[in-house]
Design a protein around this nucleic acid. Structure first.
Lengths: 374, 374
DNA sequence: TTAGTTAGGTAACCATCCTTACAATTGGCG
DNA sequence: CGCCAATTGTAAGGATGGTTACCTAACTAA
């Protein structure tokens, strides 16, 4: 049975508040009347909400708008995007913890990073906390909260259920950091974060988006109906260990060679052909081999794209490896192996966010957690 | 940008009403105090809601409950499941339109069917309307609404965007039938309906469920987080035309022979090996061939199961074909090609609803549309 | 018989939104 | 030049729906 939860008036209020913020965030400065039209609320209600938002310091009046029409000129109100900041941490990399201070536009104001020096477990948590503390001192405006993109399986409360490479199992990271720093903390899987970043800053289609992150490993974040898919055990997107190459495949896709043993103990996982180390070792610079990897990727993605009727698949990772024969082969394989209704509207493209996908996504966690902005 | 919609107090009321009905539907007769505890609402609010539900005739007081504990004995209230009926129509079959009258328990009270006689387009709409009219006369209790399970791509308003075999394109079926019969009408894709039936009557896990319907064609319905996945173009679940067999596959999986031409114009689609006609022609009674089909199915499902971290995959179709070597081969292939975290908790089973999946699902459309019960 | 517990109802209050009415300000038109 | 229509933002009053606090009824355990 589906368990829903009761709706209090204050929940409705919070929801409407988010709608107003959302509109200001994406639509830029607007008059109260504009906001009323956009949200469906009355001008009265919007005025009231705006008043509280101004009192909270999140929104400010800009003054009368250049009037083109008849009637009383509107006074624009705007989100004070430069007057608040948030902290983002990206733990994707094995060797270094990346941190940044961003403003509400998503502009990176400052970066800090520390080598991870092989730390794991509690020591790594401490290192993350130290990095956050440093970021707090670097911030020049009030900090709304902290977002963390972590590898591994993360639940909706920000507990890292498992991240073997980090020595983490059931680590309540959000709770620990929040207690340590006295700020709201939101933690999510790195691929999920990259997916949110694509949605918020990359202009992606929230009706059906899959972001494939290619790095040390291969992961995916999926957004349907504007929300992340989490999965029964919070392991949605763990697509790196689907078999993508078995013995018979390798006979025809010769450039790939035989299926390789994967770190997970099995053989022929997608990671063994598509992760960055595998690509560098066995395909970099060889268009044929890159195309062969692309074909394997297309074959793996075809059922997912069809089942979900996705609008976009976005690749995040080194462009010199991904954005060429690999991507093109994946795309044509995808087209060849799905019906037109599915492939017609499908985009398969590179991210426009470069290396900062997960980091920007960590920022989005805060925006969405604290302001309800997506 | 995600567009959300405003929440009025009356929406909250409707939501709470649904929560109470939901609880009564799944939990059976309960006291008002039970309902309050289950929903998180106050006893006052629940009492008020129950009063209106009694006035509407949906709920009735059963009298004092057999008291086991101290305190005033509770008076049970119950959904009047036998005193209301709903109509369900299943258009999946090429040759016959299936209809039924059900009560709110999901018990089928009466069945009616008419041969489709090759009708398509408007004539078919008329035939469906006629069938509904007959069902209305057969019903012995007030009818809450009509649910229709149709093949093809159906949008959220019950418009059939395309159903080539029925000669339908952009047919606002729900609207037409509703105008004709004066009752609320809900239309959904047949596989989606089967999926909802599995959720409501089959006790399936709404956190990650895929129902694969195998008949004339192959389709899938997917429920994540308790809601159907619809897809950008409402074509989610159209998995029958993913390539499942190419030239090189057939060399090893000899029992399947060469990839066959599919009705969609392409070659080697999942339907060409898994649809009932294909199974009957080329695999029925041959365990090796059935297992080979199961392996192809497992290969196609592995990426979907991994990407979504599904809890259950349910097969709906002729058990003599599906529930044997085919299912077992699919299951072991699925296990072999996904990582343990994914496959560990995954069930791959037959439906418990037999042939009536889509029909029962059509009934669920009404339950959920009119009462908010899932 | 009395104390304690549970169910269910009533009254007063609070939050939120809506509708209606109005002041302020502008452009266009006679 | 002055009036009207359009538009914005605010104020007052009403409707809805929830909460807390308190009351009575009916039962069990001592």
């Amino acid at each position: 049975m589906r368990t829903t939860t009761k709706v209090l008036p204050e929940d409705a209020r919070a929801h409407h508040r988010s709608m107003v913020l959302q509109r200001l965030f994406h639509g830029g400065p607007s008059s109260r009347a504009d906001l009323a039209r956009a949200t469906g609320l009355t001008r009265v209600t919007v005025s009231d909400l705006v008043t509280t938002l101004v009192d909270e310091g999140l929104v400010t009046e800009l003054g009368p708008s250049p009037t083109g029409r008849v009637g009383k000129p509107a006074t624009l109100v705007a989100l004070r995007t430069r007057d608040h900041q948030l902290l983002a941490v990206d733990l994707t990399d094995d060797l270094v913890l990346l941190g940044a201070v961003l403003d509400l536009e998503g502009e990176i104001v400052a970066r800090r990073s520390v080598p991870s020096d092989g730390r794991t477990g509690e020591a790594l948590v401490d290192a993350v906390a130290d990095l956050c503390r440093e970021l707090v001192t670097v911030a020049t405006r009030p900090v709304l909260g902290i977002g963390v993109a972590s590898p591994g399986v993360v639940d909706e409360h920000g507990t890292v259920l498992q991240a073997p490479n980090r020595g983490w199992a059931d680590v309540p990271l959000a709770q620990l950091l929040s207690a340590e720093l006295g700020l709201p903390v939101h933690v999510a899987n790195d691929a999920d974060a990259a997916c949110l970043a694509e949605l918020t800053y990359g202009g992606a289609n929230g009706d059906g988006l899959l972001v494939l992150t290619v790095g040390q490993g291969v992961g995916a974040g999926i957004v349907l109906d504007g929300t992340l898919v989490r999965g029964t055990r919070h392991a949605a997107g763990e697509i790196g260990h689907v078999t993508a190459l078995d013995e018979r495949d390798s006979r025809d896709d010769a450039p790939l060679g035989l299926p390789q043993r994967c770190a997970c103990g099995r053989t022929g996982c997608l990671e063994t052909v598509l992760a960055v180390p595998a690509l560098r070792d066995r395909a970099a610079g060889d268009p044929e081999a890159l195309a062969a990897v692309g074909r394997r990727l297309g074959i793996v993605l075809a059922p997912v794209v069809s089942a979900l009727n996705l609008a976009e698949v976005v690749l995040s990772g080194p462009p010199e490896l991904l954005d060429g024969p690999l991507r093109l082969a994946a795309r044509s394989t995808l087209r060849n192996r799905t019906m037109p209704v599915i492939s017609e509207d499908l985009q398969l493209r590179m991210t426009a966010l470069g290396e900062d996908g997960a980091l920007r996504g960590a920022a989005v966690l805060v925006l969405s957690g604290q302001l309800g902005v997506t």
